[in-house]
Write a protein that binds this DNA or RNA. Structure first.
Lengths: 246, 246
DNA sequence: GTCCGTATGAATGTATACATCTCGTATACG
DNA sequence: CGTATACGAGATGTATACATTCATACGGAC
């Protein structure tokens, strides 16, 4: 039983506030530009103002909220360009992670773990009829997380963790939408080919190639964004994309 | 009279706490690994615990502090590799900023401002006898800030602002140390040549070249780091470098 | 009718009291 | 003498009361 330790950063209240407010924002219940009142939120979430304040401050750091010069916070409005930039930024950072891994080398044990993941994703993607998207999302997330670790740079890993606080910048952001698109399989097959190429480049210590590949890999998500934007119905399927305003 | 508006994020107390704690940490008064007690800090800075808490949370986001699993914060210890990574990360992000500026184009007015800055730095660096380091630091800072803006990406600009919260990652971090080194002039002349090349590449819409140049520009700082590390006397001249532990 | 000053209300910023948990220490038992 | 347990000091987490500031609306003067 996961004994609720203080490590949860407010084992209860502050974490509740964080998750609660995030939910309110990304579900669109509050809407871009709208002001977040501490007292109203504290009533709505049945918490005191203190954990609410802590959560608001953190969400501002995450880029979800903006400070009002006179005090307080509003929901940040994202443009399509903002989302595209966030995705490309992830690509740049993951490219750097891949390059670091290639240049600095990685322990054989970890490469083995990488290959194990690749094999699992292979079988998932190769599924003839119905793909297990849930499994794909899990393994794909693990792949990227491991890649970040392989960089060997904590500073870089932190920064990547930060950028991926924005849900639409996540590697898995568009997978659920892809599940409803006709060319799904092909798209994921391409993604997996890129996964393999990235690992290959890392093993061969080809830093430049590893970086370029990881960037291109993120561009897949970038392309999907353009497709999804066209289809308002699909947009609701991508987490956090409801925040896009103009 | 700068009317203290709430926009200062705690017009007084919270800002005081932030600056105060940062000072305590970067001056080495607290030291890596040491725990930061809220009550002790509140006494030391003559503030209540509330603004202290807010400042601690922010400094943790900035990467200066680390959370203890059981609650509370300690001063983060930086290795030489951490500092090098932070500098290289800045280079990667500034490279992306330069590439964006080249690819997306910048308004002529802003390019003019860029050239004006370049001209000013030229005259400063060309000074025959004593260089005005203070002026150089100011203009150099403005150059980099403007470069970040020229990217046209707010997301990227935010991320750059974050990375540069670590003082040793700042473009100006090693200038004061350079002032005490024999090869100062040459080093800054090279830096200025790179400045010009970056702007040139942006004007010619050569994204790849702009990115590579900005990265190489950051490597100058990286190289200076190695030199400074050797000389414990110089280390104290570089802000925040006292945090380096092992 | 418009503009400016004032006043009122609500929001955030701050301080502090209280609750809860962690960790060190001392003591008792095996 | 070592270990386990219980206790206590001190830390953070939380709630709330108080101070201060900002925005809005109202009223009066020009």
């Amino acid at each position: 039983m996961a004994a609720p330790t203080r490590a949860d950063r407010g084992g209860s209240q502050t974490l509740k506030a964080l998750l609660g407010i995030r939910e309110l924002v990304f579900s669109g219940a509050i809407g871009p530009g709208e002001r977040l009142s501490e007292v109203i939120l504290s009533h709505r979430l049945s918490l005191s103002r203190t954990p609410i304040r802590a959560a608001l401050a953190q969400l501002e750091q995450e880029g979800v909220l903006e400070t009002i010069p006179s005090g307080g916070y509003t929901v940040r409005g994202f443009t399509q360009a903002d989302v595209a930039d966030a995705i490309e930024l992830r690509g740049v950072l993951e490219g750097t992670a891949a390059r670091f891994a290639a240049e600095r080398g990685v322990a054989p044990v970890r490469l083995q773990a990488m290959h194990a993941l690749l094999a699992e994703i292979d079988t998932i993607v190769a599924e003839p009829q119905e793909m297990d998207f849930s499994a794909y999302i899990d393994r794909n997330g693990e792949f990227h997380e491991l890649l970040h670790t392989l960089s060997g740079s904590d500073t870089l890993r932190r920064e990547l963790a930060r950028v991926m606080k924005l849900p639409f910048a996540l590697p898995n952001a568009f997978v659920t939408a892809q599940a409803q698109m006709p060319e799904i399989r092909a798209s994921l097959v391409v993604a997996q080919a890129q996964h393999r190429a990235i690992v290959d480049a890392i093993e061969l210590r080809e830093g430049g190639r590893a970086e370029a590949l990881a960037r291109e890999h993120a561009r897949l998500a970038r392309n999907n964004l353009d497709v999804v934007i066209e289809d308002r119905n699909l947009m609701t399927k991508v987490p956090g994309l409801a925040l896009i305003s103009t």
